[in-house]
Amino acid sequence: MASREIYANGFDEDVQTDDQTNGCPECGGRVETNTVETVCEECGLVLEEHAVDHSGEPVYDDEDERTGAPLTAAHHDRGLSTTIGWKRDANGNTLSAKKRRQLGRLRREQKRGRFRSKQERNLSHGLGEVQRIGSVLDVDNTLREQACQLFRSAQSEDLLVGRSIEAMAAASVYAACRCNGRTLPLADVVEAARVGENRVTNAYATLNENLGLPAQPMQPHAYLPRLASDLDVPQRVQRRARALTEHAEDECIPQGASPTGFAAACLYHAAQEAEYRLTQTEVADVAGVTTTTVRNHRETLLEELP
């Protein structure tokens, strides 16, 4: 039985012996490579230094200084504040009860000093609403960042005065989608925002007027795939509805007409031509419009068809 203590000889995984070379070029001694440099054990000659760090830490900037996470417009402080954990330390070890109480007191004081003014508090609340609405509507992170930047611009231009923060947050999400060509029905935004449609419409009009948004008018064909998918209509009806929307966009869409309502009318008319059972009520409910809107747009479409 061995008399020496177990684990008396350790092994450092970060240290590697260079056995593939002839050793140190000065004295011929053994060369070791760690996470920082390559050095001779005998004479101390440094052969290489500044090794590449593969630990996944923050990147280096142009001045060779360590940087943190990238700045983000989704937080009122752009992500520069410190987050205090709850039950475990950085190594995953469980904290003692005394340490948890201490961190609880620190966390409470941090929350009290987190906002320097009421304006920052409102900004934090608004950005949180933008993130929540974007998550409900399954908006990707890029559009959420743009929506947060729009909300920041609205606050800096004093557009929040006399308006609901929730409505302005919903309008920012809707505006970001409109500027990037994503079809997002206003009814879905209103439902996710839990505010009145008039408030969201007025907030969007304010953003569009004061910030000069590059939003393009939405066309009926952009809403057609979602309507067809929700109603589960066959492919032949979808193809005919697509042809009708393209014809309507070139010929007969009246000024100010609802693109969603016109797409619903084209889909309903295509279903009637194919003798597929689809009622105006079903189409109107999915499109978020009334049956009267569907009926009127269909009559306009029939006047222009050969």
Rank of each mutant, 00 (worst) to 15 (best):
A2Q: 12
A2I: 09
T17D: 09
C24W: 02
G28S: 00
G28F: 05
E42F: 02
C43A: 02
P58L: 00
Y60Q: 12
D61Y: 02
E63V: 09
D64L: 15
T67E: 14
H75W: 11
R78P: 05
G79F: 07
G79P: 02
S81Q: 10
T82I: 13
G85V: 05
K87H: 14
N93K: 09
N93S: 12
L95T: 06
R100C: 09
G104E: 10
F115E: 02
R116L: 07
S117Y: 01
E120H: 08
S124P: 02
H125W: 04
G126A: 07
L127T: 00
G128M: 02
G134Q: 06
D140V: 09
T142G: 07
L143K: 05
Q146A: 10
R152Y: 07
L159V: 08
V161Q: 11
G162A: 04
R163S: 08
M168H: 00
A170K: 02
C177D: 01
G181E: 01
R182P: 06
D188V: 07
V190L: 05
V190N: 04
E191Q: 13
G196H: 05
N198L: 12
N198C: 00
T201K: 15
T201A: 15
T201P: 06
E209G: 05
E209N: 14
L211E: 07
L211V: 08
G212E: 03
L213N: 01
L213R: 04
A215D: 12
A215K: 07
Q216W: 08
P217Y: 06
M218D: 06
P220Y: 05
A228C: 10
A228P: 00
R236S: 11
R239I: 10
R239D: 14
R240P: 00
L244I: 13
E246L: 14
E249Q: 15
C252V: 13
P254G: 05
Q255A: 15
Q255I: 12
S258Y: 02
P259Q: 06
P259Y: 01
T260E: 15
A265M: 01
L267P: 12
Y268P: 03
A274W: 02
R277N: 13
T279F: 03
T279G: 09
V283E: 02
A284P: 12
V286C: 05
V286A: 14
V289M: 06
L301I: 12
L301Q: 06
E303M: 10
E304Q: 14
L305C: 07
